[in-house]
């Protein structure tokens, strides 16, 4: 029982990171119908950026955290302007391949800049685990859960009440109608990439604090697919709920099944879930079902 709860809690924490990364993914898809295979690399760059500033430049963690977010905004704008804008109106496959190319490019850059060995953040949170009932949770887990919930709330409010957030939702709903209402669709796309880069960076920093970062963090870009399919590709609450569900499923599956398969169940379990969802409910829990006409 204790083992189960422990798995559940760590799954929840992992899920909160998934939710963050998936949120960025869904945002880009929702506003510009671009599926972003480079999301994992955005996570990676955010994490390394913060690490580099805290460790090499000795900037206090909070300031480097904010600076990383600023950098992520610039990166998001730059990617959209340089690579995605020429692709408006191109077929899906080309856009998919472009983001795949982008992910290879960014990953290579990260290796050149920071190498491949695992690096850990300096201890920012106290190592003393907190006892909650009969489970012991390390503080970094609690912090990452709290932080991601804060960010998720901020973004939910952002979409509901700010002008830009409403413009983004309008663009997602109907590009032509949004254009005719005077919304700059290009700016919305750029914003979507900036926000995606920001949430990815936050996810990366949390992940780096939990178990260090190395190049394999980029896998998060692929691991997030089951999350968004489960939640529905174009649903923000779906991404958040899907993130928590997949995080828990992965942890339970790897906790109970790894001994039988010799490890590695974590990666495959969520993809098995993905196939099942695609078979029975392809548009996910909250996704919008598209009706096609010839």
């Amino acid at each position: 029982m204790q083992y189960f709860v422990q798995l559940l809690v760590t799954g929840l924490v992992l899920g909160s990171v998934y939710a963050m990364v998936a949120l960025g993914f869904v945002l880009i898809y929702k506003s510009s119908s671009v599926i972003n295979f480079a999301q994992g690399e955005l996570v990676l760059i955010g994490a390394y950026m913060a690490l580099w500033m805290t460790v090499s430049l000795h900037i206090p963690f909070l300031i480097s955290f904010v600076l990383t977010l600023v950098f992520a905004v610039i990166l998001g704008f730059a990617i959209e302007r340089l690579f995605l804008r020429p692709m408006i109106g191109e077929p899906i496959l080309s856009v998919i391949m472009l983001t795949i190319g982008l992910s290879a490019f960014l990953k290579g850059l990260v290796i050149i800049l920071w190498g491949t060995e695992t690096r850990v953040f300096p201890e920012i949170f106290s190592q003393e685990p907190v006892k909650l009932g009969f489970v012991r949770i390390s503080q970094v887990y609690i912090w990452s859960l709290v932080l991601s919930i804060i960010f998720l709330v901020i973004f939910t409010l952002f979409f509901k009440y700010t002008d830009i957030g409403i413009a983004m939702r309008a663009t997602a709903d109907d590009q032509t109608a949004a254009l005719s209402m005077g919304i700059s669709v290009k700016r919305v796309f750029a914003m979507a990439w900036a926000v995606a880069a920001v949430v990815a960076a936050v996810g990366g920093i949390l992940l780096g604090n939990i178990n260090g970062i190395n190049i394999s963090v980029a896998q998060f870009g692929l691991r997030v697919f089951p999350v968004v399919i489960l939640g529905g590709l174009d649903s923000v609450p779906g991404a958040i709920i899907g993130g928590f569900i997949i995080g828990i499923i992965e942890n339970l599956a790897s906790g109970y099944l790894d001994p039988y398969f010799g490890g590695g169940v974590r990666e495959v379990a969520s993809f098995v879930v993905l196939v099942i969802i695609l078979m029975i409910k392809p548009y996910g829990l909250f996704g919008l079902e598209r009706i096609e006409r010839v």
Partner: peptide
């Protein structure tokens, strides 16, 4: 030391440039 990373960068750039 950078060779494999360089290959990734060039691979990615090639795809991007071709697509654009």
């Amino acid at each position: 030391n950078f060779f494999s990373a360089m290959r990734e960068v060039v691979f990615g750039l090639t795809i991007i440039l071709f697509l654009i």
